[in-house]
Design a protein around this nucleic acid. Structure first.
Length: 224
DNA sequence: TGCCAGGCCGGGT
DNA sequence: ACCCGGCATGGC
C-alpha cells in the first residue's frame, strides 16, 4: 500500500473517532471559565488533579474577588496556598501560579491581547521556561486561552490511542511531541477542532477509560 | 478502603 | 536519555 493511502486511513480513523465522540457527548464548549485569566489559572491548578477540586479552588479565589492579575500579583503566596487548598499540591501550585503571574504581569502588563499577539511557538518556548509549566499546561494555555491551533496531549489522549493501537504501548512510550504531531499532521490546523477534540477525549477518558476499570462496553469508541 | 485525578520538577542512574 | 519520588485534596 502506498504511504499516502496509509496516511489517508489514519486521517479517516482519527476523524471517525472525533465524530463518534462529538455525536455521543454533544458540544462541550471548553474551557470552563469566565475569562482567559481563569482558563490559564485553571490550566495550572488542574495538573494531575480532577476538575471538581480545581473548580472549588477557583471559586474560593473568586469569592474574595482575587481572580485578577494585580490581585494575584500582590497576594501573599502562603495565603494563596491556603485559598487553593482543595485542588491539592497547594504549596507547589501556589508557587507555580505565582511564577506564571509574575511573568504575565511583568512581560505583558497582565494583558492577554499583548501576550497572544505573539507567535505561537516562540510563546510556547517562553511558557515552558516558567518553572511549573510543562508541555500540557503550556499547550492548554495556548489553545484554550490563546485560541492557537495547537493540540493538547494528556494522559487520556495517550491511553486512548494506546487502547486503539494507534501509538506504541508501555515500554518505548511515544513522546509528547510525537503524539502531538500525530494529531496535527493528520488533522486540519483548526483551533476549534483541537479545542473540541481534546475536550471530547477527556470526557470519554473520565467516563469510560479510567485507569482502574475501563468500561469498554458502553464506550462510544468500543466498535472501532 | 484504596485508588485515581485534565502534570511537573529535581535528582539519580 | 529514561526512571523515580515527591507533591495532597476529595470522590467513588
Amino acid at each position: 500500500m502506498l504511504d499516502m493511502e496509509k496516511d489517508n486511513k489514519v486521517k479517516e480513523k482519527l476523524l471517525n473517532i472525533y465524530q463518534r465522540l462529538r455525536d455521543f457527548f454533544g458540544p462541550l464548549s471548553w474551557w470552563p471559565g469566565d475569562s482567559k485569566l481563569e482558563i490559564m489559572v485553571g490550566a495550572i491548578l488542574t495538573q494531575n488533579t480532577n476538575w471538581q477540586n480545581v473548580s472549588r479552588a477557583i471559586s474560593r479565589i473568586k469569592e474574595y474577588n482575587l481572580l485578577k492579575v494585580t490581585e494575584l500579583y500582590n497576594i501573599d503566596e502562603k495565603y494563596l496556598a491556603q485559598l487553593i487548598k482543595p485542588c491539592g499540591y497547594y504549596n507547589l501550585k501556589a508557587k507555580r501560579l505565582k511564577n506564571f503571574i509574575n511573568y504575565f504581569y511583568r512581560l505583558y502588563d497582565g494583558s492577554t491581547e499583548k501576550m497572544f499577539v505573539r507567535d505561537c511557538y516562540s510563546l510556547r518556548e517562553e511558557l515552558l521556561g516558567i518553572n511549573g509549566i510543562g508541555q500540557e499546561t503550556a499547550d492548554s494555555i495556548l489553545l484554550y486561552a490563546g485560541e492557537k491551533p495547537i493540540f493538547v496531549v494528556d494522559s487520556y489522549t495517550r491511553r486512548i490511542l494506546e487502547r486503539h493501537k494507534m501509538i506504541q504501548c508501555d515500554s518505548n512510550k511515544d513522546s509528547y511531541e510525537k503524539i502531538q504531531a500525530f494529531f496535527m499532521n493528520n488533522l486540519p490546523k483548526d483551533h476549534n477542532l483541537y479545542n473540541e477534540f481534546h475536550a471530547q477525549i477527556v470526557m470519554v477518558g473520565k467516563n469510560y477509560c479510567k485507569l482502574g476499570k475501563p468500561d469498554c462496553q458502553k464506550c462510544p469508541l468500543s466498535s472501532i
